[in-house]
Simulated scan of single mutants.
Amino acid sequence: MNEWWQSKKKKTEKKKKHNKYSLFELFQDVLCWLPELILLPFRLIFWLFRGVGRLIADLS
């Protein structure tokens, strides 16, 4: 049983890919998320005012 387990373990280790997250990929991700992080507060304020406006309109 132990021999079978060792051979199975070696096979699965060979199949695993050791993908490393490079600095360039990190830089790309930051560049993609930066506009979203900058615009998020403005979107939240817009949604807040829109919701309050709709609430006031429904009460009238």
Rank of each mutant, 00 (worst) to 15 (best):
W5T: 01
K8T: 06
N19L: 10
S7Y: 15
L37E: 04
T12M: 15
L34E: 01
L37S: 09
S22V: 00
A57E: 09
K17I: 13
E25P: 00
F49D: 02
W33G: 02
W33R: 15
I45F: 11
C32N: 05
E13C: 01
W33T: 12
L37F: 12
S60N: 07
L55M: 11
K16P: 00
K8D: 04
Y21N: 10
K10L: 12
Y21D: 09
L39F: 13
K9P: 00
Q6V: 03
L44F: 10
K8I: 05
Q6N: 11
C32F: 15
W5K: 10
D29A: 06
K11Y: 00
P35R: 06
M1F: 14
L31Y: 05
C32E: 15
W47F: 14
V52K: 07
F49N: 03
L44D: 02
F27D: 02
K8W: 12
L39W: 07
I56H: 07
G51D: 14
L34G: 05
W4R: 10
L26V: 03
G53H: 04
K14H: 01
D29M: 13
E3Y: 08
A57H: 05
I45R: 14
K15T: 06
N2I: 14
C32Q: 04
L39M: 15
L34P: 02
K20W: 14
L39H: 02
R50E: 13
K9E: 05
L34Y: 01
N19V: 05
D29F: 08
D29E: 06
L37Q: 14
I45Y: 01
L44Q: 02
R50V: 07
L48A: 02
G51A: 13
R43N: 09
L59W: 08
P41Y: 08
P41R: 02
N19C: 07
I38N: 00
N19M: 12
Q6D: 02
